[in-house]
Every structure is written in C-alpha cells, then in structure tokens.
Design a protein around this nucleic acid. Structure first.
Lengths: 159, 159
DNA sequence: CAGGATAGTTAGGGACCCCTAACTCTGTCA
DNA sequence: TGACAGAGTTAGGGGTCCCTAACTATCCTG
C-alpha cells in the first residue's frame, strides 16, 4: 500500500511551492494572482500547477479558495527555500555577486544541486564567516584578489 | 536582415552540444549511438535533437551522415564545457566532493549559472589554488573544518 | 441590490522533450 | 553477392509547462 508516492517534484513545481511558501508566510494563505506575478506566469498556469500540487498532497486548494500548503508541502518548500538561501548567501557573501543577480541564479540553480553539495556549501559559508572572525577574512581576501585579476584583464583588453 | 537568431539554447540542446563536442574530439565526428548512450536517451531522441541543432546552424548533420559541429556550434559547446569544468573543479577541489557526484551536479548546474557567477567561480578557484602555494591552503583548511563539523553532527545524532 | 472590476477557471493549442515500435539504410562476412 | 546485424530514422504517442481567449465567480461600491 502506497498512499503517497514521492515523485521527484519538477523544477517548475518546486518554484510554485517556494512562491506559495513565501507568500503564505506574509499573509494568511497565498493568492493565485500573486503567485502568477511572482513567477511571471499567466494566471491560468497557476491554476494548473495548483491542481498538480493538490494531487501530490502538497497544497490545500479548491477552486476560488485560499491557498495554503499541507504539512508535507511546507516541509518540502522549506527545504527548497533553504537551498535557495544557502546558494544566494554563497553568491553574495563569498563570491561578492550583486544581490539581484544572486537571487536569480539561486532560483535556477537550487533545483540542480543535491544535498551533498548544498551541505558542503553551507559548511563553506560558515568556514568563511569564521575566517572573518579569526582575522583572516577569506571573502574579503578573495574580493581583493578578484578585483586585481579582473582589473588586469580589463586593462589588457583595452590595450 | 538577420540570418541567424540566437535563440537561447535549451538545457537539453546544450547537453547534446556538449556530448557531440566531447565525442567528436576523441574521434572524427560523433556517432548517434554514442550520443544516445552518453545522455542515456533513446536513439530516436538524438535524431530529433540533431535536426534541431542543424536548424540552428550549430551541427553539420544529414541522415546517416557523420556528425560534427559547425564553427558557431563548437564555440557554444566549448563555452558549455568550460562552465562544466569550472563547476566540477569547484566542487571537487574546493568543496571536496566526490568526482562523480561533482560530475553530475556540474552537468545540471551548468545550465543555470550566468557568466558573472561562472567568472567569479573561476576566479575563486584560482584564489584557493594560490592560497595553497602561499602556504595557507583554504581548501585543505575547509576540509578539516567540514570534517570536524560533520563529525560533531554525526556524534550528536548518534547520542 | 445591480453592475462593474478583478480574480480565478476552463478550453484549446503550441513548444519541447522523451519514449516504443517498426521501418530503412549500411557495412560486413560467408 | 546476398543476407544479417546493428545503426539510424520515422511514426505515433505521452508528459510537462506555458500561453491566449473566453467564461464564471467574487467582491465592492454606488
């Protein structure tokens, strides 16, 4: 007997889950229209996704009703959000990328990386942070390194 | 006039491009069967992809003929391969992930990250490598850090 | 309460990507 | 040379995801 299979959520459905999680956090339940705006998608696409999420037991949804996540849905969404934040933090705080570039990249890459790499990335961020407290700021050192490198490149290109 | 649009290659077609690039490098032109094996895909799917790549001017292909890349195709493929290698190198040499896990993750993530982040990642690998030569091996330091952290976690979980 | 604005849904269709089954082509070996 | 094996293709179909257009429900305000 198998009431609920674990069907490897698609990247797209993960995005919907994440959006609902974020929107439902701010208010009480998400609105279809806001999900559509968040994901830059037509409202009708949201309806379809909600039906899929309901079938998988991840979202509480009935036509014209307000949208919340089930317990398993919340768990899954939280994991996606966690990945997202770890990636964004790595891009911003270690690599020194702009927040909005990091945001977009995290959104795409979060579907591609498994727990092994995500775990190490988190660990790495902690390592870099501690290096900062220990007076050997790896992130800052790298930023200097990168600046001088790319500066040299740019000068070369201009010649 | 615009003879050749640049249609944002899909992740799937990028994978085909990469496979052809790698296979054609080893011998003279790739074989459909080997592409199918490399990508774990049916042979008929390869035919479809080849037609798409030909239409985009990226692959030289005619039915039953041998498969090579055009000049623009090679350029694009080289860029994909470059991304792939940078990611894999970061996963292996900085994060200390197993080669095969890194390989798979790089394959998925390479489609998600833009030039800005890839560039910085490359820079970061160089930085870590130099830190090694300078007697302050960031990668090694991190591996120790990660080991002690995950060790502590494991011990905690066992208690 | 009526009617309009807005939100949400359904219907229908397209793009992409993959599959299996059945066919055709090609090269090789007796 | 003829026939077989294996490579490659075509036909047909399924799944996902998205869109527009048109319809329906809901809400709010006069």
């Amino acid at each position: 007997m198998k009431t609920e299979s674990e069907p490897q959520l698609s990247a797209s459905l993960e995005d919907y889950l994440e959006a609902i999680f974020n929107l439902a956090g701010e208010s009480e339940g998400a609105r279809s229209k806001d999900i559509a705006e968040t994901l830059s998608v037509a409202r009708s696409s949201v309806t379809g996704a909600l039906q899929a999420l309901r079938e998988k037991g991840l979202a509480n949804y009935r036509p014209y009703g307000c949208i919340t996540l089930t317990e398993p849905g919340r768990t899954l969404a939280a994991e996606v959000v966690r990945k997202h934040n770890i990636l964004k933090s790595f891009f911003v705080n270690v690599l020194g990328v702009d927040a909005d570039v990091a945001q977009q990249a995290a959104c795409k890459a979060e579907h591609a990386l498994g727990p092994e790499i995500i775990g190490r990335l988190l660990s790495f961020i902690k390592y870099v942070t501690e290096s900062h407290r220990n007076g050997r700021d790896v992130a800052e050192e790298f930023r200097q390194f990168h600046k001088s490198r790319s500066g040299a490149k740019a000068r070369k290109a201009q010649a």
